[in-house]
């Protein structure tokens, strides 16, 4: 079964139509998407760098992860809330864009990894430095792939 009719419907939704037909909605939502990206990236980086032994090294990993958790969840929510209308406005283009599908795949993988393995490794006492480093590398790799493929939706 093809998902194409679904994406046609996405594009025809009221939100999709409104964003597409407005001169300024798409750019404005895109700007918020970018600002949320900086904050999401910052909160992911600060914990992953710590697990690699860099950055805020004087803070225990578990405490640091707990401190930035709300900011990370909030910025991820902002990214999704802004990303959905952007996608709806050009859903058919996204359907035909390989980077879009890569992005969705990596996004699911990165989110699942964050709420399962990464959360447990960050909270573990006593912590295993090797496991932490491995987790940080996988996390950084997955989120990088989300951002990278996201940018390439514009090109392919």
């Amino acid at each position: 079964m093809s998902l194409f009719p679904l994406f046609q419907w996405f594009e025809a939704t009221a939100v999709g139509t409104a964003v597409r037909e407005s001169l300024w909605l798409f750019p404005v939502i895109e700007c918020v998407h970018l600002l949320a990206l900086a904050l999401l990236g910052g909160t992911v980086l600060v914990v992953d760098l710590r697990m690699l032994g860099l950055g805020l090294r004087a803070q225990p990993v578990a405490e640091l992860a707990a401190k930035v958790h709300l900011w990370m969840a909030g910025s991820l929510a902002a990214m999704i809330l802004t990303g959905v209308p952007l996608m709806l406005s050009e859903a058919v283009k996204c359907y035909y864009s390989p980077p879009f599908w890569y992005k969705m795949g990596f996004l699911v993988a990165a989110s699942l990894f964050a709420v399962s393995i990464r959360r447990r490794v960050a909270a573990a006492e006593p912590a295993s430095p090797v496991l932490q480093k491995l987790t940080a590398v996988v996390s950084l790799g997955l989120w990088f792939a989300v951002g990278f493929s996201g940018r390439w939706i514009a090109f392919y």
């Binding site: 992911v44 980086l45 600060v46």
Partner: peptide, 13 residues
């Protein structure tokens, strides 16, 4: 674009 995370992410924190 992605270096925003490295730069503005840290500045924002």
């Amino acid at each position: 674009v992605l270096t925003l995370c490295l730069f503005l992410g840290m500045i924002a924190l």
